[in-house]
Design a protein around this nucleic acid. Structure first.
Length: 293
DNA sequence: CACTTGACCTGTCCGC
DNA sequence: TGCGGACAGGTCAAGT
């Protein structure tokens, strides 16, 4: 799924498109994608105005005038796509060739939200791992996930020292598993874990206790660099991901290891990127930059 | 508590 | 071409 840069890109796209709009109705085709009771949806979603679109970790928060919020997790294949003029609009026409969406709704559409001007927001999710739910805005901070999630890595107060401290709770596991752990820091997923570890020249299977302070500083810097760059490029479209306008991101053109097995390392043109399995996930390394621990 | 593995789903790709 | 298995951006529950 969408990791921090992709979710942030969606957030920015939605912010400019839906804030101020009024929701008139919604339909859900898959119970688990939007499990709230119909009465709750009727009372707190229909008729509400959009106040703000926020992000925490990989979760989107759409604040409503009813003092409820829509909490959305895209998981692996979720999309939130805004379409200006409803079903007749040929979406994607006139877009650059990188537009994935031709017409919505499609077979993966789980929820449709209709605004008063007949524009729509589609929640598409091929694998049905994602979900959206309504809850009182004041209860967000008490959600179990938010009560445990770690700091935002792109905030100014997220220093290398903070990362070092947060890693101490996972000394026995691999550095890759540790940075994927959302309670250590928020927002890193499989793509940026691999890219950050390559940037810091750390093998993903290195035990946290064996990672030096200097390496943690390099990792802190590399993770922030790759995620800032990815936001600039509109995120990574490995497969399903598109932004709020239905367009793909271009970060994968700048990736150094992710999904580049068999291709040369940009630091060592005669060395090929290898793929292995670490923390139960496909993992990509340069065997020279990142020697086995 | 720390750590690992399987489960949740659908679709695609790869080898036989 | 068909079919089985592995794998895919994330998180949780349950196991050790």
């Amino acid at each position: 799924m969408p990791e921090l840069p992709e979710v942030e890109t969606v957030r920015r796209g939605l912010e400019t498109r839906i804030v101020g709009k009024t929701i008139t109705k919604s339909t859900a085709t898959t119970e688990k994608s939007f499990p709230n009771a119909p009465a709750v949806v009727q009372t707190f979603l229909h008729g509400a105005h959009i106040i703000a679109v926020r992000r925490r970790a990989k979760v989107l928060l759409i604040d409503l005038s009813t003092n409820y919020s829509l909490m959305v997790h895209l998981k692996m294949t979720g999309q939130l796509v805004f379409v200006p003029n409803g079903a007749e609009e040929r979406f994607g026409a006139g877009h650059p060739s990188d537009s994935l969406v031709s017409q919505l709704p499609d077979a993966s559409t789980r929820v449709t939200i209709v605004f008063a001007d007949d524009s729509r927001l589609y929640f598409n999710d091929q694998r049905k791992f994602g979900w959206m739910k309504l809850l009182p805005t004041s209860e967000i901070e008490h959600e179990p996930f938010f009560a445990r999630v770690g700091p935002e890595p792109l905030e100014d107060d997220f220093t290398a020292d903070v990362l070092w401290q947060r890693l101490q709770r996972r000394k026995g596991t691999t550095i890759k598993a540790a940075i994927l752990d959302q309670t250590v820091l928020a927002g890193v997923g499989n793509i940026y874990a691999d890219e950050g570890l390559w940037g810091a020249k750390i093998h993903p299977a290195t035990r946290v206790r064996d990672v030096s302070k200097q390496q943690v500083i390099a990792l802190w810097q590399a993770l922030r660099e790759v995620m800032f760059l990815s936001i600039q490029k509109g995120g990574s479209s490995n497969k399903n991901y598109v932004d709020a306008a239905g367009n793909k991101g271009s970060y994968m053109q700048f990736a150094n290891v992710f999904r580049r097995e068999g291709l040369p390392c940009s630091r060592h043109p005669d060395v090929l990127i290898e793929k292995l399995r670490v923390a139960g996930r496909g993992t990509h390394i340069c065997p020279v930059c990142q020697p086995a621990p």
